[in-house]
């Protein structure tokens, strides 16, 4: 895995905007692509697809169980269905239908969970989906993708449309920094964003940007971080993880979701078996979110780059002390 120089950060966009563009492009590229929505067309940003391909856009109403099961039937009829809602409801409400009719049934249904994570903001805990990574990565046959920014989300949507497997695509509501280039997305492939040998920073979703900020802070403290972005949580790029961990022997993971069973859990499982390594897992620690502005909530839960850098610095100091 080579180091990828990424563009300077000039702007912010919600991941779902990238998804919306990618879906339109996927619709042009393949006439089998259809989109289903559960009364959230605008906020999942499927409006562009609905306007471009009205015959291939299906409104199912506020019915998330029906959303994915209708999508399964369409997949069986040869379509490539993208079924979008808020992650709190899909897969939050319809996990069994996804398991039985998409994953076990091996249908290429694309579950799009918008508004995942705490950055949903003022809507509060009911709408802040923090358990979806854990829920979806334990499901056999299911691919789990969590892009880092809107540019990557656009590319990821195209890759997801081409992939024959059922996929969970995790999106966020808030506008987050654009820090990744528009390289074609390869499912299952990690991207190295900083080269260093003191600590591995492994991020997924929009928290990789916070790790980028943290890496800069740590550099000021003389700590060279190896920053690896994992936009695919399952299948995890084990080789990239092990290569980095073998050099640094210290791993920090970050995700906007529950620490239990999430991305950090996936990383820890690989390391425990192949290369026992200390792992600091940063995420939400066994509690629910609450109302607030997205940036306030990131700070409140210790997920900003500055707070992560402090946390990592302490951890490294302690880890070295106990060697």
């Amino acid at each position: 895995m080579t180091l990828t120089e990424q563009p300077p950060i000039t702007d912010r966009q919600p991941l779902r905007a990238g998804f919306g563009r990618g879906l339109v492009a996927a619709g042009h590229a393949d006439h089998r692509v259809v989109a289903l929505c559960a009364d959230l067309t605008e906020s999942t940003m499927m409006t562009g697809f609905a306007d471009a391909f009205p015959a291939r856009f299906i409104e199912v109403g506020v019915a998330e169980q029906n959303l994915v099961t209708v999508a399964s039937g369409m997949a069986h009829a040869g379509k490539i269905p993208f079924a979008a809602s808020y992650a709190a409801f899909s897969p939050g409400r319809n996990w069994e239908q996804i398991k039985t009719t998409a994953a076990l049934n091996d249908m290429p249904v694309k579950i799009v969970g918008a508004h995942a994570g705490i950055n949903v903001g003022p809507d509060g805990a009911t709408h802040q989906m923090l358990e979806d990574i854990a829920l979806m990565r334990v499901m056999p046959n299911m691919v789990v993708v969590a892009p880092g920014d809107a540019t990557e989300a656009e590319q990821a949507t195209l890759a997801v449309a081409r992939d024959p497997r059922p996929v969970y695509l995790r999106l966020a509501r808030a506008a987050t920094p654009l820090f990744l280039d528009a390289a074609p997305f390869v499912i299952g492939q990690a991207r190295r964003l900083r080269d260093g040998s003191d600590v591995t920073l492994a991020g997924t979703g929009t928290l990789t940007y916070q790790l980028l900020v943290a890496a800069d802070r740590l550099a000021e403290l003389g700590i060279a971080a190896d920053l690896v972005h994992f936009p695919t949580i399952k299948p995890l790029d084990d080789a990239a993880l092990l290569e980095s961990a073998a050099r640094t022997r210290l791993v920090v993971t970050a995700e906007e979701g529950q620490r239990a069973g999430g991305f950090g859990g996936a990383v820890t499982e690989v390391l425990a078996a192949e290369l026992p390594t200390r792992v600091l897992r940063i995420g939400i620690d066994d509690r629910y979110g609450e109302s607030g502005e997205p940036d306030e909530l990131l700070a409140h839960f210790g997920l900003t780059g500055d707070r992560i850098a402090e946390h990592v610095h302490e951890y490294i100091t302690r880890a070295k002390g106990s060697k």
């Binding site: 169980q65 039937g73 009719t101």
Partner: peptide, 8 residues
């Protein structure tokens, strides 16, 4: 719902 999806 799967049958309905197929029929659609």
């Amino acid at each position: 719902s799967q049958a309905a999806g197929f029929a659609y």
